[in-house]
Amino acid sequence: MKGLLKSMGVTLSAFTRKPVTREYPETHKQLPERDRAFPILLWDHGMNEPFCTGCHACERACPVECMTVLMKDNPNHKSQGGESSRRKIIDKFWIDYGRCMRCNICVEVCNFDAIAMNNTWQGHEKSVYDRSDLVQELPQLLAVHRSGELKPWVVP
């Protein structure tokens, strides 16, 4: 009998405590800066072009082969009369978010710090009606950092 009353007491004390529910769509939890949503590409605000040179390092390192990279000559390179020091630059970049397993390996292998994990809520709220919509194109991948929403976090 004592045990029954004790457990009734536990639930009664919980009844008086404050609920722990987060009402999700209205209140978003503060995401830590190292939160890993999905990989995105970073934008070189000084040079006004992506950091990515299309070197295929991430594509090779990806365990699930969710990336496709195409490289091109940089039209903004110094030899072409531009200002950039990047000889090659990314032409097309697809990441299939449906396959990505968010392991962070692409970020670790990148030599140019050109790819990072999205740590905003945008990166988590990616539901779509069609799987093919999960394949992200280059402008979509660049948008988050270009608009300045990404919280800075550099892997030490």
Binding site: P32, R34, D35, R36, C103, M117, P156
Partner: peptide
């Protein structure tokens, strides 16, 4: 765990030799 590793379930934080990155 999310603050440390960045993910809530699939941490992928240990590496052969040590850890992927320093804790906060």
């Amino acid at each position: 765990f999310e603050e440390i590793t960045g993910d809530r379930m699939m941490y992928a934080y240990f590496r052969p030799g040590g850890l992927a990155w320093e804790v906060p």
